[in-house]
Design a protein around this nucleic acid. Structure first.
Length: 561
RNA sequence: GCGCCUGUAGCUCAGUUGGAUAGAGCAACUGCCUUCUAAGCAGUGGGCCAGGGGUUCGAAUCCCUUCAGGCGCGCCA
């Protein structure tokens, strides 16, 4: 729909520009808020006003005159409104053809190739393997996963990656905590580490360790067995993260270990690569990266006085490694509390010659978890928190994801478990799923009645629609519904370019709304076979788009409810 | 103190990258099931877009400033 307008207008502008001789602005297409003014609108006349030093309405008149002369005309009318909007209204045949194309090409017509196969890597969740996932991770997982689905559908070659922080002190502390609990299991009252992890899961790991290795570490000090204990602990934790994510419907293509980068000597290699660019220097017994040469406000230590690499050093390496693996665009999805980290990573990538616009950070704002309107305090170390697992079990993955995907990532959100549950019956996610289930139900009924099978090639479960006359769709609600379907590619493309999955969520609610209204007002299965087939075809179109959108969000599309 | 994010209906949030009379869901109130799924439909009320300046044909959106909330500002990870 958008492309048709742009093609037309572009052609008109080019021919008019023979007389104007200006550099033409981009043609911005928008859907008017008010349905009654037109199907689609452009603002180019107002943008041209300054360039041409002419009143926008006058320019609009010239453009309209040029367009209405074109053949074949698929506009019912084209008019000028307000300060210089040009509003287009399509003929019904245009919508019939659009629906036809959707039914023939199905999902492929809903995807795009703006990515042109570019390799893009999205890193998200990347929770420390020192405790179970909490609700904030869940938000990151939902957004990251949906974004990847969008980008894939937009023609990018996407890799989903989880970065495992398995090299630092935090993991060691996990090991210490497990070690202490393990000793306590055997009746040794050893002191628990000062800042150790206190959650019940630590005891579970200790029990598992006991089951596996018996009393092997009982008389061994942590300094000697720490590696084995820690290894066992974090691997178990990792398996736990992976299974929670899987049950949430989020699966990664690759899990990158930080420890491995160290072991392969890549961290050192990355620092040396920077040194070769003269971006590394020694000062006060430490090694520094000159990040102020780029966007950072101070230089950063990469190797401490004690000779250990900093976490930042592994991150330099990690991001270089992403480039070495051949990704041309890198998206990092982080918790918003890491935003101060952006300038230094940006500096790293610039140092390795990645153009600015090829690196993007999406910040996921905090989720404050409530129960009955009362905030639930979250502290991983203290072991007092509600896990993602508990939320999934209590509220359900579909509702949880939908709530996350109905907000833009960088605004804080309140997640009240009880409200989410109480509202379940009224939850917007059901509104969308219900539309899908209703259509499925119609198809079952149509199939029972054998509709279409004798008289045409229409079949319910696929879209072989030969013999179906879509011109039978003439009700305003039907045209509105088709129009809504044809808007999907615009919304989708916008979501892909802006990296904003929530746009799809809103669109689906609107589409479901238009469908429900239509369904209520008009009977789909009637005595009139020609009309019935056309309406079932329309429903089929709605089903395809709902299916596509829900798949992108990672929300299920139930055949029955 | 400095930096980033946020402030839109009673509540939770959108607002198409600067467009037309600012929207949705929930909550409240009215109606609609003998008809393909009422997890639905139709309607009513509800707003100083935090406040104040500016930029222009046009601002919830961009700039400055004040206020309020959140988060950062390690040779931690």
């Amino acid at each position: 729909m958008k492309q048709d307008i742009i093609d037309r207008v572009q052609k008109a502008l080019e021919s008019l520009n023979a007389g104007w001789g200006v550099t033409l602005p981009d043609i911005e297409v928008e859907i008017p808020r008010d349905e009654s003014v037109g199907d689609i609108a452009i603002t180019v006349a107002m943008r041209l006003a300054r360039l041409l030093k002419k009143p926008p309405r006058k320019i609009a008149e010239e453009i309209v005159a040029e367009i209405t002369g074109q053949q074949p005309g698929f506009f019912e009318n084209v008019d000028i409104a307000g300060p210089g909007f040009i509003n287009f209204r399509f003929k019904q045949e245009y919508f019939h053809k659009g629906l036809q194309a959707l039914l023939e090409e199905e999902h492929s017509s809903l995807r795009s190739d703006i990515g042109k196969g570019a390799r893009i890597q999205v890193e998200f969740v990347s929770a420390n393997p020192t405790g179970p996932l909490h609700i904030g991770h869940g938000r990151g997982a939902a957004v990251g996963s949906a974004l990847c689905n969008i980008l894939k559908a937009a023609g990018y070659d996407v890799q989903k990656e989880f970065y495992i922080n398995d090299a630092g002190l935090q993991v060691k502390l996990l090991g210490r905590s497990v070690y202490a609990r393990y000793q306590q299991l055997h009746g040794n009252d050893v002191p628990f580490p000062e800042d150790g992890y206190k959650g019940d899961y630590i005891a579970d790991i200790a029990k598992d360790l006991q089951k596996n290795d018996g009393d092997l570490y009982l008389k061994v000090p942590f300094d000697e067995c720490g590696e084995a204990v820690t290894d066992h602990a974090y691997k178990m934790m990792l398996a736990n993260l992976e299974s929670d994510l899987k049950d949430f419907g989020v699966v990664f293509d690759n899990w990158q270990s930080e420890k491995e980068l160290h072991e392969q000597g890549k961290v050192e290699g990355a620092i040396n690569a920077l040194r070769a660019k003269d971006l590394i220097y020694d000062k006060d017994g430490a090694v520094w990266f000159s990040s102020t040469r780029f966007e950072d406000d101070k230089d950063r230590v990469v190797k401490k006085q004690d000779g250990e690499y900093t976490y930042f050093a592994s991150d330099i390496c990690y991001h270089k490694d992403k480039l070495d693996r051949g990704f041309d665009t890198i998206i990092d999805i982080w918790g918003a509390d890491h935003h101060g980290y952006i300038p230094r990573i940006r500096s790293v990538l610039e140092a390795f010659d990645l153009p600015k616009e090829k690196f993007r950070v999406i910040l996921i704002q905090m989720v404050s978890l409530l129960r009955h309107g009362v905030p639930v305090q979250m502290s991983k170390r203290a072991g007092a928190f509600i896990t993602l697992r508990e939320v999934i079990d209590e509220v359900g993955p579909d509702i949880t994801k939908f709530i996350f995907l109905t907000r833009k990532a960088d605004s804080q959100l309140e997640f009240d478990i009880d409200v989410a549950k109480e509202q379940s019956a009224e939850n917007p996610v059901f509104y969308v799923q219900y539309a899908y289930a209703r259509i499925s139900s119609l198809f079952r009924l149509a199939e029972e009645k054998g509709i279409g099978i004798q008289n045409s090639k229409f079949k319910i479960q696929n879209s072989e629609i030969e013999g179906t006359d879509l011109a039978a769709l003439i009700e305003p609600e039907e045209i509105l519904l088709v129009k809504k379907l044809l808007q999907y590619p615009m919304v989708f493309e916008g979501a892909a370019l802006a990296c904003e999955p929530h746009r799809i969520t809103y669109y689906l609610q609107e589409l479901a709304g238009v469908f429900h209204a239509y369904y209520y007002k008009h009977r789909i299965i009637t005595e009139d076979n020609r009309l019935t087939l056309a309406r079932l075809s329309l429903c089929r179109g709605v089903k395809i788009v709902l299916d596509e959108g829900l798949k992108i969000l990672g929300v299920s599309a139930p055949e029955r409810m």
